[in-house]
Nucleic acid binder design. Sequence first.
DNA 1: CAACTCCACGGAAACGTTTACGTACCGCTT
DNA 2: AAGCGGTACGTAAACGTTTCCGTGGAGTTG
Lengths: 327, 327
Amino acid sequence: MTSTSRDVARAAGVSVATVSRAFSEAGAVSDSTRRKVLTEARRLGYSPNPAARRLITGRSGNIGIIVPDLANPFFADIIKGVQRRAREGRQAILVADTDEQARLEGDALRSLARQVDGIILASPRSAIEDLPGDLNIPIVLIHRQAPGWWSVTADFAEGVRQALVNLRALGHDHVAYAGGPHLSWSGGMRTESLRTCAAELGVHLYELGSVAPTIDGGLAAADLALATPATALIAYNDVVALGAMRRFGARGVDVPGGMSVVGCDNTMLSQLAVPSLTTVDVPRFEAGEAAVALLDRYLADADAEPIEQVLATALVIRGTTAPPRQT
Amino acid sequence: MTSTSRDVARAAGVSVATVSRAFSEAGAVSDSTRRKVLTEARRLGYSPNPAARRLITGRSGNIGIIVPDLANPFFADIIKGVQRRAREGRQAILVADTDEQARLEGDALRSLARQVDGIILASPRSAIEDLPGDLNIPIVLIHRQAPGWWSVTADFAEGVRQALVNLRALGHDHVAYAGGPHLSWSGGMRTESLRTCAAELGVHLYELGSVAPTIDGGLAAADLALATPATALIAYNDVVALGAMRRFGARGVDVPGGMSVVGCDNTMLSQLAVPSLTTVDVPRFEAGEAAVALLDRYLADADAEPIEQVLATALVIRGTTAPPRQT
DNA sequence: CAACTCCACGGAAACGTTTACGTACCGCTT
DNA sequence: AAGCGGTACGTAAACGTTTCCGTGGAGTTG
């Protein structure tokens, strides 16, 4: 059905080795025969069989990416970044979605491990030591640091610090925080940073505990926030913030008049909200691109020292923050 | 480094053929030797090399999916459906995002073609005859029908018909429609259905032409709608609808008081909007799952007659539709 | 007891590449 | 003219499976 290097070799009057060399850029072939081979190949519709190539070289040219939830625009953007960078390197990407279930991350890793050259693991929900350790494949983490692991993260501490400083400047000194999944490393960073900043600034911080990173989680967070004296709410991410805004509206609390709201991530959702959402910008495309770049370096030198790259974050002021209403 | 079937064979005191048979469910092996092989395999950390397996069987066990934009929750959900179904069949999925560029669809098809057993092509932006025809691989279309092609689509005609009937019942007889990308098959369905229904119902239909399927497209659509006597707007999809709502708000037009809005797709965005968006529900997970099911049938029998599966749609009434304000 | 069937398993070819090694040839130096 | 280095290319082994075919032994039948 589909033609092989032998067919091309025969047609071009050369050996299969020469065909192979003509296709792998580096090979020592004269320009004239390379041209001859390539035109015959085109004529026959030949392209190298990736399975055979991979069997001998051990490289598939594919990379895998594992995310908690594809439907979360945050992760969709990360994948777009990965994709864009991978396309330049002629790599295909395999994606696995774990539906926010930590248990599935190990399965996904295992099933991808033999298929790809390296794996990007975004925002793992498992503890790092629960991940299978025997699969012997380069892994780059996104939004999680761990000793001995390659990673690209964002400076969440700085982002939420800016948020709290800004709220303080507006006059808020009772601020609530709705956290995310327990084992989210980035969530831990946010909590920790908020605690120290709150102490420094003399702000009362009401930790509402962790809610689901969904609209429903946001609805719940709003009720929790209204049970405290807080006049502002910082949410784990934009989705939670929007859920909370919905619930505030339903309960007759004006945003930002009665309650200021700050999200995190700066996804497209934050511009869609009415009023548009003040949020902490977290680079997503860039994180995806950086992860591929790191993976490439890792693959080039497996014994290199792990790199931990950190991207900048910044507060984006929009319409959901204002001075607290005077009472 | 990683062990091979020969290692397992030696350890278990059998031949490599028997190891292979023990792993491929069907093979004729006694229970006792199979058990022995499997325990030795586990002990050595062996799993079959997919490249070698694929080289001889010609099957990779992978499927590809191509979408115009991963960041659009509509397509993210389709992929989640694909993923869920594929996980059951132990298939990995390769994803390609074409950034809404028709030109990249051919490239994506070509680069995936040799890597996977079959491809799901969602909402192609290219004309069907512009797709490479020589790649000799099963393809299932989503949201596009074409003679001789396998496809799963939704009954968009019925969905928008319900929307128009509902608006008419509320008292709207001047309705605007903002269309999507020119070569979108589903967009064509919507336009056509609206035209015939409008004629039947005696509704004046104002076709605003095609706008980008983005927030910005929605902003533009709103201005166009306000330049007509229309009291209701039907948008190409939820994103456009939300963009339009934003713009209506900015121009002081109350929704639904001054203008009713109907979206399409029923993505999570429609529940996020304030007020929540009346929209046409289009199954997405189900479309993804159905596409994998069709692909499996296609792969099982390449000569079978193409199947064109159509999923149901239905209007979901929420808060953006109401009777027009009396003048 | 012979002839036959069936089952479990081993031997070996095949899948389509890449690459180490070998060889012929060309041009240059001494 | 002999020797030598370099370049372009061919030969063949190797990658790790699956599967066809063959074989020996156990069980069944006449």
